[in-house]
């Protein structure tokens, strides 16, 4: 057991998989010699050399296209798109190429690759380097979508993503890179499509993802201590596949559902879950499903404005305590 940062967990996860399988290769901008702009891939170039860890030009389409061509002919590439916002310049691969290949070819070809990307806000980078785009990727049939919140989950879910035969979009949260957590020694392998109950509770279910997970946990402690509301906090971890069994079981127990989402409100990931729960667990609910999200705005650079935009523990506490006390809003 060792304490590791989320950032170092990324490098350890990639190293674990590269050591296991010679067909795992890694490419991206500034990822090799520089160790990544977020320093999340330090040491990989030194350890595995320029044949397996490759710097690319600023060519996101070439990065994802090359990863796909290599994946469909036998390699298991991991590609980095530096900031998740840049997914927009290579979205053809995310939306049209990776996820359609197997279906269109009637199963003749597959696309086993991982796209890692620095997602999310909180770093004062402004509207084009701060977005939470997990919902952009959730809506496309054929993709799997993961967003870990802790160092140990980074390793286990990355290993599962690399070993999965589908294209997996792996959202790392930029504001979590410095966060530390306990990580067991030896190989770590987790399962895609599994949510994790991080705090059991009986009064209300809170679903959260990535940076929203520690905020939801902090809010749950305050809600228990100051409002007597015992919340169950679930780290969704995997948007596709979605662990609806864990979510529905929790709602059946608590009767209340809140989502805490960093993506902007419209068509955020919680909207789909709210719809599922409304369809399948309506009679378990004792009150409205409430989504706590970033408003439908681009993110500002100014620190005090960005802090107002992203859901945080005080806002979660305020919202949940009011709703649980019977207030309509």
């Amino acid at each position: 057991m060792a304490e590791l940062t989320y950032r170092d967990a990324v490098a350890r996860a990639i190293a674990q998989e590269m050591e296991r399988d010679e067909n795992v290769v890694f490419l991206g901008e500034d990822v090799a010699k520089a160790g990544g702009v977020f320093k999340s891939t330090v040491g990989l170039y030194e350890k595995f050399g320029p044949r397996r860890v490759r710097d690319t030009p600023i060519s996101e389409q070439a990065i994802l296209g090359a990863a796909m061509g290599a994946a469909m002919t036998g390699l298991r590439p991991i590609a980095e798109i530096m900031f998740a916002d840049f997914v927009a310049v290579c979205f053809d691969y995310i939306a049209n190429e990776f996820p359609k290949l197997r279906y269109m070819t009637n199963g003749q070809l597959g696309c086993p690759l991982v796209v890692r990307t620095g997602n999310g806000g909180g770093a004062r980078f402004g509207a084009q380097h701060s977005q939470s785009i997990e919902n952009w990727t959730m809506m496309i049939p054929g993709l799997k979508v993961v967003a870990p919140s802790s160092p140990v989950d980074v390793i286990g879910l990355m290993a599962a993503a690399v070993r999965d035969d589908n294209p997996v979009i792996f959202h790392e949260h930029k504001s979590l890179y410095a966060v530390k957590g306990e990580v067991p020694d030896g190989e770590i392998i987790d399962t895609l499509g599994t949510a994790k109950i991080l705090r059991p509770g009986k009064d209300a279910t809170i679903l959260a993802l990535a940076l929203m997970v520690p905020r939801a946990l902090a809010a749950a402690e305050t809600l228990a201590a100051e409002h007597g509301i015992d919340c169950e906090v679930i780290d969704v971890r995997s948007l596709v596949p979605l662990d609806t069994a864990t979510i529905l079981a929790s709602v059946a127990k608590t009767g209340r559902l809140f989502t805490v989402e960093e993506n902007p409100r419209l068509c955020g990931w919680g909207a789909e879950i709210a719809s599922i729960v409304a369809d399948e667990a309506f009679w378990d609910l004792d009150g409205p499903i409430v989504r706590i999200t970033t408003p439908h705005i681009p993110l500002p650079a100014a620190d005090h404005l960005e802090d107002l935009a992203l859901p945080n523990a005080p806002r979660i506490v305020e919202k949940i305590s009011r709703v649980m006390n019977g207030s309509k809003r």
Partner: peptide, 8 residues
């Protein structure tokens, strides 16, 4: 780019 990946 996909053909590049196959060549890679």
């Amino acid at each position: 780019p996909i053909a590049c990946g196959s060549a890679w």
